[in-house]
Nucleic acid binder design. Sequence first.
DNA 1: CCTTGAGATTCCAGTAACTGGAAGCTTTAT
DNA 2: ATAAAGCTTCCAGTTACTGGAATCTCAAGG
Lengths: 131, 131
Amino acid sequence: MNIGEVASRSGLPPKTIRYYEDIGLINPMRGENGYRAFREEDLHKLTFLGRSRTLGFSIEDCRTLLALYEDRNRESAQVKSVAEEHLRQIDDKIAQLQSLRGTLAHLVQCCQGDDRPDCPILEDLSGRPAK
Amino acid sequence: MNIGEVASRSGLPPKTIRYYEDIGLINPMRGENGYRAFREEDLHKLTFLGRSRTLGFSIEDCRTLLALYEDRNRESAQVKSVAEEHLRQIDDKIAQLQSLRGTLAHLVQCCQGDDRPDCPILEDLSGRPAK
DNA sequence: CCTTGAGATTCCAGTAACTGGAAGCTTTAT
DNA sequence: ATAAAGCTTCCAGTTACTGGAATCTCAAGG
């Protein structure tokens, strides 16, 4: 398989696939013309990576997960632990965004949004303690 | 004022302040020794920027907001529009994370997390349609 | 007066995970 | 034969800083 086919089958752009090779996530063979020659196994890995990235795992997490995926003697606890840590970080991020959203929504609501210059949003940003 | 004082008064690290000058957000004067000489106005701007960044506005948004802040003839509608767009993006992000969180939490729950290799998380990642 | 030490300066590199584009080779289709 | 598509590598850019090196200035202690 050439990169184009693997790209459409895995859903990842060719650029990304080359990048994944660069950073050592995959190791496709080469044909005599210098083209990458992907095996089914490579495709599986790429699919795995695509899905992992979709779930928000970092590349380093993906590296770990891929290694566990390939290790027939892994303990599922290791996988679960990576996923749990990621889940915690997602929860943190959500909480952060929600708090931020609250403040911002309040400010937006306070602003008339007309042709006059008075603006509670700018007032808040300028550092005055919000009333 | 030297950069150190502005840093502690604005809450921004000196590095960040220099960076903001680099990209043209502020324009402090210089003393004869080559040191930046900040006026109160610069400090206000930096405080404004710090608060805006805390609320998640991008640097480009900050540039726009700062310009509006300085423009005595602005229309509050312009400010509101920037903030509303940002709010929409935050909502999108939250929705994305929550959906992701749902999937991930389900997978984590399904995984025993013991010393055996069987792992529903890896099975999902490997691309098999989840049962 | 000299010498630290703190604080200032610039510049270069690195972060995360790609993405875009240039220049050039191979293969395929007309 | 030639043009288009697809592949290759390499360099740069994205976001918003942050760390570190080499150098310079300033304030205080002995």
